[in-house]
């Protein structure tokens, strides 16, 4: 029997532990493509979260009705429905954002993050857990997209969310808002994230070794006394 984790844990694990971009390396296309500015990143992440949460909720609710042979096809139909809703709402309410994001709103349908969470989590867990899990993953996705979009916008055009941040004398690095900048930023950020995890792990390992050594010394010295 798997150990039951608290609902809060289902939410927080998506933020870092299984962060969609850094840890699962899912949903790379939108991560790279739309993060020219922070606002685009936020809009994309919100649209993705909307689809992720609602489709996972529905999938979790009807998970016992779907025959396993056709489950992937049924998931895709459910996801496509919500993507269509998101796409039409964006087109009607935020035409400029919708134009800036181009084909990437309809492309949420093939974002592996959504199908991945549906297959790995929502199809095996209760609706409330699936809800927390998808909210957590959505938030994790939002954070990453905001960070990358923010970095690229600050360095590439000197603004954040449209406000001038860098001093006027700062010459924006055009490369950051071009495709190459997206690859470089994400690559470096991922490397940094790995570096952080790695150093934390080695510290833990060292402390365990230290503990083991000190306990061994005690054992070694004790019989001799």
């Amino acid at each position: 029997m798997k150990k039951q984790v608290t609902l809060l844990k289902e939410y927080t694990k998506g933020l870092w532990e299984i962060n969609p971009v850094f840890k699962q390396v899912l949903g790379m296309c939108p991560t790279l493509a739309v993060t020219v500015s922070a606002i685009n990143g936020i809009a994309m992440a919100l649209a993705t979260t909307f689809v992720l949460v609602l489709s996972n909720l529905i999938i979790s609710l009807i998970r016992k009705l779907i025959p396993p042979q056709v489950r992937i096809a049924s998931y895709i139909v459910i996801i496509a429905t919500f993507v269509t809703i998101a796409d039409l709402v964006m087109k009607a309410q935020f035409p400029e954002l919708s134009k800036a994001l181009g084909p990437f709103i309809p492309l949420i349908v093939v974002n592996c993050l959504i199908l991945g969470r549906a297959e790995a989590f929502a199809s095996k867990n209760t609706p409330i857990r699936a809800l927390m899990d998808s909210l957590g993953n959505g938030t994790g996705f939002l954070i990453v997209l905001f960070i990358i979009g923010g970095i690229r916008e600050i360095i590439g055009s000197g603004t954040l969310l449209g406000f001038q941040i860098m001093p006027q004398v700062f010459e924006p690095w055009l490369i950051m808002i071009l495709p190459a900048g997206a690859f470089l930023t994400l690559g470096l950020l991922m490397g940094l994230a790995n570096f952080y995890v790695e150093s934390k792990k080695s510290k833990e390992r060292e402390s365990i070794i230290q503990k083991y050594r000190s306990s061994k010394q005690v054992q070694l010295t004790e019989p001799g006394v």
């Binding site: 390396v25 190459a180 690859f183 470089l184 690559g187 991922m190 490397g191 790995n194 790695e198």
Partner: peptide, 14 residues
């Protein structure tokens, strides 16, 4: 070491 795998691939792609 931290850059092995996906990160270095992304940088090369850049």
């Amino acid at each position: 070491k931290p850059f092995r795998g996906a990160p270095i691939t992304l940088i090369v792609a850049g």
